[in-house]
Nucleic acid binder design. Structure first.
Length: 211
DNA sequence: TGCCAGGCCCTCTTTAGGGCCTT
């Protein structure tokens, strides 16, 4: 697969529309089946960290006091990933924060997101859970520590993405796995993906039946 | 004080409701 950037936000809450802001971001560049570069930074948006979030992530208001401003970090990480396609676990969450923070900078995202959770739901339909940590554990992938910190979660999501890529190539006999193919799979009805497994259904670029 | 987002996906569905997943 061509290079992609797997990103993960820690934030003060669930919704930028309700005033929540990022507290930390990590971006992991993946190329040729391995991590080739990393970016990680705490960031200070001038908001206190709610107690629940501090317990979850270990990121406290005091830790953010001397962190660089959110505007500086977001500009830096946006330059770090450039135009490389983006990946995240439950990407609808990260894409909302990414777009909201770039908008504050007068910038706009030019690349698409792939969601490892949506792809996993299709490629691994019998997984007991689609939480990032649970998927990594059930697949026997090495966990990154500490969980619920941006870099560890981004690295685990990148390992999950590479495992999904392997599943598509080996079990689904996928000729080549591209970001564009993952973007199509994550929108594909589960029944359609299964149809390809038994050599039926319409043509999908990059996939061939395994009858 | 009580409540709070939103897209996806399943089902006892589709004129809906509720769980999952992210922090």
């Amino acid at each position: 697969m061509d290079a992609v950037a797997v990103i993960d936000f820690e934030t003060t809450g669930l919704s930028p529309l309700r005033g929540d802001r990022p507290t930390e971001i990590a971006a992991v560049l993946v190329a040729d089946g391995r991590i080739v570069d990393r970016y990680q930074s705490l960031m200070n948006a001038g908001l206190p960290v709610p107690p629940f979030i501090e317990r979850l992530t270990g990121i406290s208001t005091a830790m953010l006091r001397h962190a660089p401003p959110v505007e500086h970090v977001m500009a830096e990480v946006a330059d770090f990933v450039g135009t490389v396609p983006l990946v995240a676990h439950n990407a609808v969450f990260d894409s909302r924060f990414w777009d909201a923070e770039l908008s504050r900078l007068g910038r706009q995202r030019g690349q698409s997101f792939v969601c490892t959770m949506l792809v996993a739901r299709r490629v691994l339909p019998r997984a007991p859970s689609y939480k990032l940590g649970a998927l990594v554990a059930s697949l026997g992938l090495p966990a990154a520590e500490p969980a619920h910190r941006a870099l560890a979660d981004a690295e685990m999501a990148s390992r999950l993405m590479l495992r999904l890529e392997r599943e598509l190539m080996e079990r689904f006999q996928c000729v080549s796995v591209t970001h564009a193919l993952l973007a199509r799979i994550q929108r594909m009805p589960k029944s359609q993906l299964h149809a390809h497994l038994v050599g039926q259904g319409p043509e999908v670029s990059g996939l061939r039946g395994s009858s």
